[in-house]
Design a protein around this nucleic acid. Structure first.
Length: 503
RNA sequence: GCGCCCGUAGCUCAGCGGAAGAGCGGCGGCCUUCUAAGCCGUUGGUCGGGGGUUCGAAUCCUCCCGGGCGCACCA
């Protein structure tokens, strides 16, 4: 399937005899579309870019869909297109618009959040989910088969400390010095049995509320038990009584212990489980295993790739998505995000304060490489001005018009030339497929909020200047806003935000 | 010391090889008409600094300065 913009680029390319990419100028004075073909090819032919551009402009303007072609700046070709282009572009928009670009679908697993079940999900871990889930949604929309998995440690030191903390309270004793002290520990102490399952259930409820659904949950303890099967496939050596993986020979910065020395209990480390887990993923039919890791785990990206190579897998099947920290402050003071102290900001509290949608938006709005600073005192105050509501409002406004329209006809061509606001809106809609695909391929969902704001901008301006109901253009405009609504809803959905019918 | 990331408007940040942007804040306008959570105007920047590559650099390379996070037989 080719889009109206791609078809236009092909036609222009044919006219000038070169591969042409069309871009949307930021400044509307620079036309509807622009291309730099002249700048690109001038040097090879040994001509001045502006001269060449002038010659190409004369050819391009012959095309029926092109209204004008002007040379600008160092040799850009600025194009204006006629109404036919806009109407064609609008006609191709439906529920699947912008998606399904993948030629060869992969089975992809995105493993994310994966916080130890020793306490509730905190805001910094939520960024992991907001980012990972948005990438997952983008890949799904492109046509991949995506599953989301939560991996947790149910047997390590931290979890034992957590269990010991709950047990201590049950016996009426103080929580151990290094133990977990949040009020949730006391709540769990009121129940019977292992506190891990109820803790996990609580985490799952929080994630569902945050619009993240996990398809599967993996346990570290089960994986560790299968280590023996894979030892022969590994490059290992013994030192100081422990068994080491020679990961430095496969691109990592160091070697790591996978089985502790007898003095330390002779038990497998979490890195042993990593190995089994990776094999399990790649052997159970995944084409690609994605890990979502925070800044404190950046170094393990090399480890994952190293063990993939050590085991003889194509390391491109392992992909690590890295993101920077969420730094919490309260009134200028740093609020430490340590689950142990209980002095933390929980995702549930964050959602209570600013709402689920603003929380999702907030955590995915910045690029993954950017540290997020959250001033908790300002977050609630600012949440009312969050751009997410600006975008949702555009969606709700459209819903309102459609309700008033009842079952009125839509879809006819407009009775006259398109208004400026209509053209701008349609042009923005044609940006959507490009934006979505780039966001997916760059693993950069932050492009979506930025796009959604632009689209809402164009809609609000259209709404301000043009009536939909009770005018000769009604049928056409109903079609236009219906499609605008579809795209807004899709852009929001891809970052896990709801598109309300009313506000 | 080594590794990863960041330094763009007063604040928080997009932009990642083509013609400097948004939100918030400040100032001034627009509601008998489909939701004013809206619209319009205005204010505001040696894109941390030096060198380099390129027809063209906020964007790529390099050095420096400033900041975050790692560098366990914890996870």
């Amino acid at each position: 399937m080719t889009s109206a913009v791609e078809r236009l680029a092909a036609r222009v390319g044919e006219a000038v005899g070169a591969e042409v990419e069309l871009e949307r100028p930021k400044d509307p004075a620079h036309g509807d579309f622009a291309t730099n073909v002249a700048l690109r090819s001038a040097k090879a032919i040994g001509r001045s870019p502006r001269d060449l551009a002038q010659e190409l402009a004369e050819k391009v303007v012959e095309l029926e869909e092109i209204e004008s072609a002007d040379v600008a700046g160092p040799g850009f070709l600025n194009l204006r297109v006629g109404d036919r282009f806009y109407l064609d572009a609008l006609a191709e928009i439906d529920e699947r618009y912008g998606g399904g670009w993948v030629d060869r679908p992969e089975r992809v697993q995105v493993e994310m959040v994966s916080a130890n079940p020793t306490g509730p999900i905190v805001v910094s871990a939520a960024r992991n989910g907001a980012y990972g889930d948005s990438v997952a949604r983008l890949l799904e929309f492109g046509g991949h088969h995506v599953t989301r998995e939560y991996y947790y440690n149910d047997a390590g030191r931290q979890v034992e400390l957590f269990r010991a903390s709950v047990d201590a309270l049950r016996r009426g004793e103080e929580v151990p010095e290094e133990g977990y002290k949040g009020s949730y520990v006391a709540d769990l102490a009121k129940l019977e049995g292992d506190p891990v399952p109820p803790m996990l259930a609580s985490i799952e409820r929080t994630m569902e509320r945050f619009h993240i659904h996990f398809d599967s949950w993996a346990l570290q303890s089960e994986l560790e038990q299968r280590l023996a099967e894979f030892l022969p496939r590994l490059d290992t050596y013994e030192k100081d009584g422990a068994l080491w993986a020679r990961s430095s020979a496969y691109g990592d910065d160091a070697d790591w212990v996978i089985i502790r020395s007898p003095e330390k209990g002779g038990t497998p480390t979490y890195r042993a489980a990593d190995i089994v887990y990776l094999v399990d993923k790649l052997e159970r039919g995944l084409d690609r295993a994605m890990y979502v890791l925070g800044a404190d785990h950046h170094a393990t990206a090399k480890w994952y790739r190293a063990i993939a190579r050590m085991l003889g897998y194509d390391e491109s099947r392992v992909e690590v998505l890295l993101y920077q920290f969420v730094h919490l402050t309260r009134g200028g003071e740093s609020a430490k995000a340590s689950k142990r102290s209980g002095n933390v900001f929980l995702l549930d509290d964050f959602m209570d304060e600013i709402g689920v949608d603003a929380a999702r938006w907030y955590l995915v709005n910045r690029g993954p490489d950017q540290t997020i600073d959250v001033d908790l005192d300002l977050a609630a105050e600012e949440s009312a001005k969050n751009p997410v509501y600006y975008v949702q409002y555009a969606h709700a406004r459209i819903a309102s018009i459609l309700r008033s329209a009842g079952d009125a006809q839509d879809g006819a061509d407009p009775p006259g030339p398109l208004a400026r606001e209509e053209k701008e809106l349609i042009k923005r809609l044609t940006d959507f497929p490009v934006t979505v695909r780039e966001a997916a391929e760059r693993r950069g969902p932050q492009l979506l909020p930025a796009y959604a704001i632009r689209l809402a901008d164009d809609f609000h301006r259209f709404y301000q200047e043009r009536r939909v109901l009770g005018v000769p253009e009604q049928a056409f405009r109903l079609d236009l806003i219906r499609k605008t609504q579809l795209v807004i809803a899709r852009a929001l959905n891809l970052i896990g935000v709801d598109a309300p019918e009313s506000m």
